[in-house]
Amino acid sequence: MAAALGSEAAVEIKDLKKSFDGKDYVLNGIDLEIPKGRITVIIGFSGTGKSVLLKHILGLLKPTSGEIRVLGREIGGMGVEELTRFRQQYGMLFQYAALFDDMSAVDNVVFPIREHRRDLTKEQMRGIAREKLKQSGLDEKHFDKLPAELSGGMRKRVGLARALALDPDLMIYDEPTTGLDPVLTEMVDNLIVSTHNLKQGTTSVVVSHDLYAAFRIGHYIAMLNNGKVLLAGTPQDFLDSEIELVRKFVAKGVHKA
């Protein structure tokens, strides 16, 4: 599938199943390849298993069955320590930014650097953190504020700067525009694209239910329904699709666009 975009897969998921109670399957045989160096948007109605799939890619959940290879490594069988080391290649922007509320904006960004780049001095760490905050578009006067003193948009910027702190190979965005007004939504979408273009080869995965955003920023789109991939392909593939549910979804997205 990823070959359609002429690139190898950054994430390969084969027949992934997940059940929390042993009876109902939230993910019921997901087969998906996320192309390397592109922006992939995973879309679907609420409750279709998007966040559960994301947690599997991050290694936060273990699959009931199936295989997940991320950046060429099978993560389902990794132990805690191995997975902890491996996750240094991830960057993630959470839905509500998940900033550490007892740290200032700049300290939030310093945190992952301090954890993984112990060779750097404190000054160097703060220098990198300030640079990342600027890249994310946060005004310098807000650097020393606590998350509670920042607006929703500013918090997203700090969360993004923190996710970028270690120059990750795989950037993941969990519902980045949920609850934001249209202006902020567009700002976050633009931020995702500019962040993706910062480092060549970075793979970005955006989980969203906003098809408009998917068409605006996505090179590749995967739509989930009932725990399965209903359709995965380029935006054009979605426009050309004959699948009823896809057509309905697309009609709303294109209408909005």
Partner: peptide, 17 residues
Amino acid sequence: TMRVSEQIDALEVMGVE
């Protein structure tokens, strides 16, 4: 509070146990 606001998940994703 850290658990429900995903701060613990954020730590995990950052490669911090």
